[in-house]
C-alpha cells in the first residue's frame, strides 16, 4: 500500500459518497445517469466475488463491502425511492454497446480462462467505460450540477492516482497487471475532457455548461 493507492481508494470512496449524499439531501437524482450506476453496480459485483473465496485484509474486505453496498444503494435511490426525479429521457446511452463487446473481450483477453478470472476481467474492462452513459447525458443536456461535477472529478481522480500507484509498484515491487493498467489508462483518458472543463470552469466558480 502506497500513498497513491490509498488516496486513490479514498478518492473513489469520496466520489461514491458525494453522489449518495447529493441524491439523498436533494431528494432528487436529476442529472444522474442511472445506467452508469447500474454498470458500476455490475462492476463491483463481478469484481468482488472473491470476497467469498479469498481474504486479503480487513481494509480490503471492508472497502469492497462499502463499495458494493453504496453502489446498490445508489441504484435503489435512482430506480425506486426517487424514481420520479430520474431523467430517463436524457439517459439514452445504449449500454448493450458497452456490455457486449466488453463481455467478448474479457473472454478473449484475460489472465486465466476461469469463471472468477473472466468476471474479474469483465469488471476491469467495464469499469473503464462505465462512465460513458453519464458523460453522454451531460453532453446531451449541455450542463451538470456542480455537485455532480465534484462526483465525476473524484471518480476520475481515483483511476489517475491508481496509474501512479502502478508505476510505483512496478519500480518498487516489480508488480504489474497489464489488463488493469491498459484499462486504467483508457478509463483515465475518458475523463480528460471533463478534467479540463472542471479546472477551467467549476474551480473558478462557474457552472459546468457546454456550448450549444
Amino acid at each position: 500500500m502506497n500513498i497513491f493507492r490509498l488516496t486513490g481508494d479514498l478518492s473513489h470512496l469520496a466520489a461514491i459518497i458525494i453522489l449518495l449524499l447529493k441524491i439523498w439531501k436533494s431528494r432528487s437524482c436529476a442529472g444522474i445517469s442511472g445506467k452508469s450506476q447500474i454498470l458500476f453496480a455490475m462492476v463491483f459485483t463481478t469484481r468482488y466475488l472473491d470476497l467469498l473465496t479469498a481474504y486479503i485484509s480487513l481494509y480490503n474486505t471492508s472497502m469492497k463491502i462499502i463499495y458494493i453496498g453504496c453502489s446498490y444503494a445508489t441504484v435503489y435511490l435512482i430506480y425506486a425511492k426517487f424514481k420520479a426525479t430520474y431523467d430517463g429521457n436524457h439517459d439514452t446511452f445504449r449500454v448493450e454497446f458497452l456490455v457486449v463487446p466488453v463481455g467478448g473481450l474479457s473472454f478473449l483477453v484475460n489472465h486465466d480462462f476461469s469463471p472468477l478470472e473472466i468476471l474479474w476481467t469483465f469488471s476491469i474492462y467495464l469499469e473503464a467505460v462505465a462512465i460513458l452513459p453519464q458523460l453522454f447525458m451531460i453532453s446531451k443536456t449541455g450542463e451538470a450540477e456542480t455537485i455532480t461535477t465534484h462526483y465525476l472529478f473524484f471518480l476520475g481522480l481515483y483511476r489517475a492516482l491508481y496509474l501512479i500507484n502502478w508505476v510505483w509498484r512496478f519500480y518498487f515491487e516489480g508488480f504489474f497487471d497489464m489488463i488493469a493498467i491498459v484499462a486504467g489508462v483508457v478509463q483515465t483518458i475518458l475523463y480528460c475532457d471533463f478534467f479540463y472543463l472542471y479546472v477551467t470552469k467549476v474551480l473558478k466558480g462557474k457552472k459546468l455548461s457546454l456550448p450549444a
Binding site: N60, K64, H111, W120
Partner: peptide
C-alpha cells in the same frame, strides 16, 4: 498458480 496476479487492489 504462482504467476496469477494478486487481487489486493480495489
Amino acid at each position: 498458480e504462482e504467476d496469477k496476479p494478486t487481487k489486493d487492489e480495489l
